[in-house]
Amino acid sequence: MNEFDQSSSSGAIVPCWSCKGPISPRALFCSTCGAVQPPGDVDHFTRLGLRRAYSLDPAELDRQYFGFQRRLHPDRFATRAPKERALSQAQATALNDAYETLKDPLKRAAYLLRLAGRVVDVDQAATVTDPELLMEAMEMREALAEADTPDEVAVLAAQAEGEMAQCETDLARAFAEQDLDVAGKLTTRMKYLGKLAEEARSRKIRMTRPGI
C-alpha cells in the first residue's frame, strides 16, 4: 500500500473484541478470526496511511481513501453480525471524516495546527484584529460590492482563487519549516479569500440569472 504499515508504529497489543486473539490497536481486521475492529484512536494522516505533512498528492490521497473504503465499506458486512456491521460503519465514518478534512487545503491546514496544539482562528467565534489581513479583506469585499458586471465579478473571483493557490504553496513551506505562526496567519487569510470567492460566485449567479 505504502511505506507506512498500519500496525508497525502502534503500541501495545490488545485483544480482538470477537475472538480475544492478540492484535495491534491499529489493525483493521483481526489476524486470527478476521473480524473488523473498531477505528483506532489515530490522526487522519495515520488513518489513511499518509505521511503527516501539509503537502500531499491528491491522487495518492484518493488512492489511499478508496483503498481503505473498499475494504471497510458497510456493504461488505451486510450479512455479518450486527456488531461487525456497526464497526464497519464506524470505520467508514472515520475514513470519510479523515478524507474530507485532508482533501480541503483550508481544513487540512487548520487540522495540522490543531494537531500541533495551536488555537486556530477559523475554528472559533473569536475576533481578530490583524490590520493587514482585515484591510485586504475589506478592500476586496468593497471591490466586489462595486463590481457591476459579471465579467468584473469573474475577475475578482479568479483573483481570490489565485491568491488561495498561493496561500496553499506558502502553507506547504511554512509547515515544512514548522513556522506555525505564519501557517496560522495564512490559514486565516485563506479563509477570508475563500469567503470572497464564494460571495463572488453567488453574486455572479444573481447577475446572470436575475430571476433567482
Partner: peptide, 29 residues
C-alpha cells in the same frame, strides 16, 4: 477594524469625537 475568521466577516466601525470627548457621529461598513 475587526474580523470574525470563523465566518469570514469583516467589520469597520468609526467614531467622530468632539473636542469635549463626545461621540458626535458614527459610521460602519
Amino acid at each position: 477594524l475587526v474580523g470574525a475568521p470563523a465566518c469570514g466577516d469583516v467589520m469597520k466601525l468609526q467614531i467622530k469625537v468632539s473636542a469635549e470627548g463626545i461621540i458626535e457621529d458614527a459610521k460602519f461598513k
